[in-house]
Computed example of a mutant assay.
Amino acid sequence: MSTSVNINFQQLKSKLQLPKPWDSIIIFVLNILLTIPVFIIVHQNIIDPQWPFHLDQVFLFLIIVILFQLLLRALRTIIIIAIFVYLLILLFGTVIGGYGFNAVAEDYRAMMYSMADNPNPQDVIIAKLLPFPNKSQILESIEFNNPKVRNFALYATTKHFKDVKGYHKDRRMIQCFAVFKEIRNRWNYVNDPKNTEYIARASESLVHFSGDCDDHAILMAACIRAIGGTPRLIHTGGHIYPEMLIGKKADLEQANYLIKNVLFAEESRNKEIHYHVDERGQIWLNLDYTARFPGGPFMSEEILGALTLN
Rank of each mutant, 00 (worst) to 15 (best):
N6W: 04
I7A: 08
F9S: 07
Q10R: 06
L12G: 09
K13E: 12
S14H: 13
K15N: 12
K15F: 13
K15G: 07
Q17V: 08
Q17T: 10
L18E: 04
L18R: 02
I26F: 11
L30H: 04
L33Y: 06
L33M: 15
I36N: 01
I40E: 12
I41K: 09
N45P: 09
I47D: 02
I47E: 05
D48P: 02
H54V: 03
H54Q: 12
L55Y: 07
L55D: 01
F61I: 02
F61Y: 13
I80H: 00
I81S: 06
L87M: 15
L88A: 14
I89V: 15
I89F: 14
G93W: 05
G97C: 09
Y99P: 04
N102G: 06
A103S: 14
V104G: 00
V104M: 08
D107K: 06
Y108A: 15
Y108H: 07
R109D: 10
M112R: 10
Y113V: 02
Y113A: 04
M115D: 03
A116N: 08
D123I: 04
V124Q: 10
K128W: 03
L129R: 08
F132T: 02
K135G: 03
K135L: 03
S136L: 08
I138H: 04
I142M: 08
I142W: 01
E143T: 09
E143H: 04
F144Y: 14
N145D: 14
N146G: 00
P147L: 04
N151L: 10
F152C: 02
L154I: 13
A156N: 12
T157C: 12
T158E: 15
G166K: 04
G166I: 05
Y167I: 04
K169W: 06
R171A: 13
I174A: 06
Q175V: 05
Q175K: 13
Q175D: 15
C176S: 12
F180Q: 07
I183D: 03
R184K: 08
N185V: 09
W187H: 03
V190P: 02
N191E: 14
N191D: 14
D192W: 00
P193N: 03
K194S: 10
Y198F: 11
A200S: 09
E204D: 11
S210A: 11
D212L: 09
C213T: 08
D214S: 01
H216A: 06
H216N: 13
L219M: 08
L219I: 05
I224N: 01
G229D: 03
T230Y: 08
R232C: 10
H235W: 15
G238Q: 15
G238S: 15
I240H: 03
Y241H: 11
Y241F: 15
D251A: 12
L252S: 00
E253C: 02
E253L: 00
Q254E: 08
Q254H: 12
V262W: 13
S268H: 11
R269W: 04
R269P: 06
R269A: 08
K271F: 07
K271Y: 09
V277A: 02
G281P: 01
W284G: 04
L285I: 12
N286M: 02
L287N: 00
D288A: 09
D288I: 06
R292M: 09
G296C: 07
F298T: 02
F298C: 05
F298M: 10
F298D: 05
S300A: 14
S300H: 13
E301S: 12
E301K: 14
E302I: 06
A306Q: 12
T308A: 15
L309H: 03
L309M: 12
